[in-house]
Design a protein around this nucleic acid. Structure first.
Ligand SMILES: [Zn+2]
Length: 212
DNA sequence: AGCCTTTGACCAGCG
DNA sequence: TCGCTGGTCAAAGGC
């Protein structure tokens, strides 16, 4: 049995993410090693958004960290650039430099920066969406989650599942849904960022660690 | 005993 | 204003 540590969790997660038949309207990172994809920045569909409590403009710089998108040193060799620009939005990776090892040790966060006036961005939170292969909404991602709802949605074949992070002091949510137009694909959307690392003891039964 | 899931109710936004 | 829709609540049941 493989030891359950953070590095294992991260590499396992990273290995599980890739795109398949990605919807064309998605803005995607151009790097082969990066799994990040943004499904529309003008996202009004933010859970928990209260009337009068959301910005009419996206702040010029916002950050997504604590997502299971961390890349280890071995992966970085495959990255040609740590910056990617498209349509007024810059995606850059923040490096964690390790001088003793002679270079970058890991990439610890991803920054999303608007380089144009984001006048049409109404959301006050950023969401990050992944497509992963699978036929269940119970996808292992290294974090513990509590499922708090499930809804059938119009024009969707499969129900959408609603989760919040099992850490009481963390307010990250995620939604998962089996893709309607690509069989065998699960959409996972994260809202907010974790204020903690993935737990070493993974207990949530909604996303069991795959057995080897 | 303690989490976690299930599931209908509930509620707010909107057309 | 009323019904549809999607996000959340929470009681009850399961493991
Ligand atoms: Zn969390």
């Amino acid at each position: 049995m493989q030891e359950m540590n953070l590095s294992t969790l991260r590499s396992e997660w990273h290995n599980r993410i890739y795109f398949r038949d990605r919807p064309s309207e998605w803005k995607t990172c151009g790097m082969d090693s990066c799994a990040i994809s943004i499904n529309s920045f003008a996202n009004d569909d933010i859970p928990g958004k209260k009337p009068g409590n959301h910005a009419t403009k996206m702040p010029p710089t916002f950050e997504v960290t604590g997502m299971p998108i961390n890349l280890e040193a071995d992966d970085i060799d495959n990255i040609e650039s740590t910056k990617f620009e498209s349509e007024g939005v810059t995606v850059s990776l923040e490096e964690d430099v390790n001088p003793e090892a002679g270079g970058v040790d890991s990439i610890k966060s991803t920054k999303l920066e608007c380089t144009e006036d984001p006048i049409h961005y109404k959301a006050n939170e950023i969401s990050v969406q992944f497509l992963v292969p699978g036929n269940t909404s119970h996808i292992f991602d290294g974090f513990n989650w509590l499922k708090y709802g499930q809804k059938n949605r119009k024009n969707s074949i499969h129900p959408r599942s609603y989760f919040r992070c099992a850490d009481r002091d963390c307010h990250v949510k995620k939604q998962t849904e089996l893709s309607s137009d690509c069989e065998g694909t699960v959409s996972i959307t994260y809202y907010g960022k974790h204020n903690h690392l993935p737990p070493n003891n993974h207990v949530s039964s909604n996303a069991k660690r795959p057995k080897h």
